[in-house]
Simulated scan of single mutants.
Amino acid sequence: MVQAVPFGSVELHLVSGVTLLREDAAVFEAMLEGWAAQQRGGRNLQAYTVGQRVHAVRRFQRFANAYPWEWSAAGFDEWMTDQVTVHQLVPSTIRNNQIAIRQFCDFLCSPHYGWADECERRFGSHPVQVCHEWNTRVHVQENEADPRRRPLTRQELQRLFDRADEEVETRLRAGRKGAASAYRDATLLKVIYAWGLRAREAIMLDTADYYRNPKLPDFGGFGFLRVRYGKASRGSPPKPRTVATVMPWAVDALADYVERVMPLMQGGQASALWWSERGTRLSQRSLNDRFAQLRDELGLDERLTPHCLRHSYATHLIEDGHDPVFVQRQLGHAYQSTTGIYTHVSEEFANRILKDALGRIPNLLPEGMEKQ
């Protein structure tokens, strides 16, 4: 039985016996093509993930001004220093770049694909692994987001919604264009918060994603939300989840938008929930820009993004007494520790829990926290 040639093999991406015009550049491109094929075909990774990794390898090659059979750990160290000190990239981006270079070097050094022998024959040298435990970042914690990002307080959240609603009224009174889009934006922000969504999850919603909850008929057709574009594991397709509706006021706001405003913006017969002024699905960039405008008008921290609404959702559900496991399921987290990252309860809530716990132990309730 003939052994099949593995995805990414040099035999599939370099034609033997052909003189290459720019041999070094041509071999490098063939390496990238082979690595991409190995990831897509052999490992079934998503095209976006593969593209990001290939892009990272290209950036390192340009920085080092050298090809993989010339790379060294010292050159990789210089690139990491540039990323940290000059470009000031966040830790997660730096780690992703390190992972890409490490896996690319592993691919080239593997005897299964033949690239090391090919480089030795053509250039008298071969690729080596330039990433090791001393020059790569160890993943020691699950959350590496900017600690200055936080959930909105209930007061800040109300101010945000009030300002978005005020813009609708202002445009209507002045007879200006854009009242419908302002109403759309106000509703979109409320939906992100009320169902604990990520920005892309919200942007990709269709009207058919909402459906009835038989146990809560008062919510009509908005009792459950099927999120189809949940955050994927690396290289995997989007992970869907079902979110139960828990905020009646959000149902009223969304139902009003769907009935009165969405038909004014809808393009054709498509079922997208959020439409741009051009009759196409609203972009995530438009959402980010609108949130940033409202945030700046209110004088909130410039590091806050639409994702803080999801943090606010998790925090407020916990403060309102919802079971942590329920909140975990609503957010679509595999582990409760991840939900804990999203939860930043207020001091008032923490003190209430503390007082309740200490109140069960005789003579341990501190002065100033008398039991009610």
Rank of each mutant, 00 (worst) to 15 (best):
S276R: 02
Y342H: 06
P306L: 05
A350R: 12
A334S: 14
D356F: 15
A314R: 03
E297F: 00
R303S: 08
F326Q: 12
E277H: 08
R310W: 04
I341S: 02
G267R: 15
L358Y: 04
L331W: 05
A272M: 06
I341L: 07
S276K: 01
R329A: 11
R281D: 01
N363G: 09
L364Q: 10
E348V: 10
V327R: 00
D296Q: 15
E367P: 11
G332S: 00
A272G: 06
K355A: 14
T338F: 01
L282F: 05
A270M: 05
T280E: 13
K371L: 13
R360Q: 15
D356Y: 13
D323S: 08
K371W: 12
F291H: 10
G321Q: 12
Q330R: 01
E297Q: 14
A314L: 02
A334T: 14
F326A: 11
A357G: 12
R260M: 12
V345N: 02
A314N: 04
A255S: 15
S346R: 03
Y335L: 10
T280A: 10
Q293C: 04
F326Y: 13
T305I: 12
S346Y: 01
S276C: 08
R310V: 04
V261T: 08
P263H: 05
D301V: 01
L331S: 08
S276A: 06
L273M: 09
V261A: 05
G359H: 09
K355E: 02
E347C: 06
T305N: 00
L365F: 12
K371T: 06
R290C: 03
R281W: 07
S337Y: 14
I318D: 00
L309H: 00
E319V: 10
V345L: 05
E348I: 08
Q266S: 06
D323M: 12
R310C: 11
Q328V: 01
S346W: 07
C308W: 00
L300N: 06
Q293K: 14
W274M: 10
S271M: 11
Y257H: 10
V327I: 11
R352A: 15
G268M: 03
L300T: 05
